[in-house]
Amino acid sequence: MLQLLQLIVSGAAIGCIYALLALGFVLIYKATETVNFAQGDLMMVGGFIGLAVMTVIGLPFWLAFLVTVVAMALVGMGIERLVLRPLLGQPAFTVVMMTIGIGYLARGLVTMIPYWGTETHTLPVPFKDEVIWIGGEGGKTGGLVISVEHLVIILATVALVALLYVFFRYTKLGIAMQATSQNQLAAFYMGIPVRRVNMLIWGLSAAICGVAGLLLAPITFVHANMGFVGLKAFPAAVVGGFGSIPGALVGGLIIGIVESLAGFYLPEGFKDIAAYVVVLVMLVVKPNGLFGDNLTKKV
């Protein structure tokens, strides 16, 4: 029983990362109906920016965190402005290929950095390798062990989601973003600068990726192929229902926990594909996901 709880906690922590990335997908998908296949690679870029700020410039973790988030927001906005806005009005396939190209390029560019890009790095976070014991005798035997890294991920995700909720619910910009994602034309008529809002949404999504990258870094280290974790955010987004923000969170948690349990109870190899098996089952049984609306194309 304790073991099960243990697995669920660590699964939930990884699930939070998937959830954050899925949140990034969903924000962009809702606003522009584009699937961003570069999400995982943006997370990798975020991890490297954080690493650079901490080791080269030497800022403390919390300051580096802020710098990374701002830098990633600029990266996201830059991508939208430079390569995606010219594609406005093109078919979805074109835009998907563009995001794939961005991801491929990002991975290439990072490995271009001499002596750095091809290595695996440890992010020197203050809470590395610490654990908290809950229950048990004398705080050392038995009981639930939670590593601080996992705890930070869960708490940070909760805090971020609360912040986003407040942002979307109470600020003018957040409401403008909601309006844009519901109906671009109507939003435009109401005086919302749709293009600028789209750019800001890309910035927001990339910033969330940066946060995810920094949170994941203590667990998987920082390396150029870190972005492949981001591919598991697709199953998370689909399970939750593409286009639903609470769905992305629930989906991420489900995928994370299923993966963690599969790694322990099922034979070797199932852990890596658990997320994909879940998404295939979901697509066959309930393609719109847990929280998705029933979508039909209007002719």
Partner: peptide, 26 residues
């Protein structure tokens, strides 16, 4: 050598080619 010997050279070039093709020559 700082540029030419990097493993990322090939993906970078192909990434740029792909982005250029999608943008300018669909």
């Amino acid at each position: 050598p700082a540029l030419g010997q990097q493993t990322g050279l090939q993906p970078t070039i192909f990434g740029i080619i792909l982005i250029a093709i999608v943008l300018f020559e669909p």
